[in-house]
Design a protein around this nucleic acid. Sequence first.
DNA 1: TTTAACGTGGAGACTTTAGC
DNA 2: GCTAAAGTCTCCACGTTAAA
Length: 233
Amino acid sequence: MDDVRAGRALRALRLRREWTQAELGVRAAVSQSVVSLAERGHFGTLALRTVRGLFAAVDARYSGVVTWRGGALDRLLDARHAGLAEAVVAELIRLGWKPLVEVSFNHYGDRGAIDVLAVQPPSRCGLVVEVKSELTAIEETNRRLDVKVRLAPALIEERFAMRPTVVGRLLVLPRSTTSVRRVSGLGATFSAALPARTVEVRRWLQNPTGGLAGIAFVPFTNGRGSGRADRTR
DNA sequence: TTTAACGTGGAGACTTTAGC
DNA sequence: GCTAAAGTCTCCACGTTAAA
């Protein structure tokens, strides 16, 4: 959706409530002029938090769309995701696990794909791995992981002809200061849902006894060196 | 060499006000 | 009720310095 169309949507939502621009401004804690700018699609002159605040005031949600060189952005993001998944798969194989990548499912409306689904036959343990090149929607990530873990036993039985005694859940993030800081800054709820960290996760993968719920930070490599962020300015 | 703390200038985000 | 222009003020980037 372009800015002008988004502005028209904001106006329509405001008029639906029979509010003036000034009234919407009060509710969004901005002046009437800002409302006018937004409704005319001048989002470039407004702070993102202001735009979101305006849409929130009419009980709507604004999310921008990033495009770059056609589909190149998707390929760029996929490359990061694929690099992390590849590192996870290599480590699982090394530790005696049998991994499958991109295992799709469709179960009574719950549709999606598990990034990495793995089993370790000797221990009869299963593992659901969610790979995130960037941690954004925390609640949504947690919710999706819950769904996948719930469906995992049936999928493992179907794909590996084995009923697992336990299924671990693992969130994999790139090893970067941003990721580590983001996780450490998360609320207690999220930390309680995925308490184990890299060392504990590795220990469990080597000797899976009991359940696992944790986060592992994996170095990101794209096959072109260390993968360190470009610091030029 | 890296990191943190601090000061400063400028850009831009927002408000006020006048006018349509 | 709304737009546009002018003014105000906040905040961030950047440079410098000191400490580890």
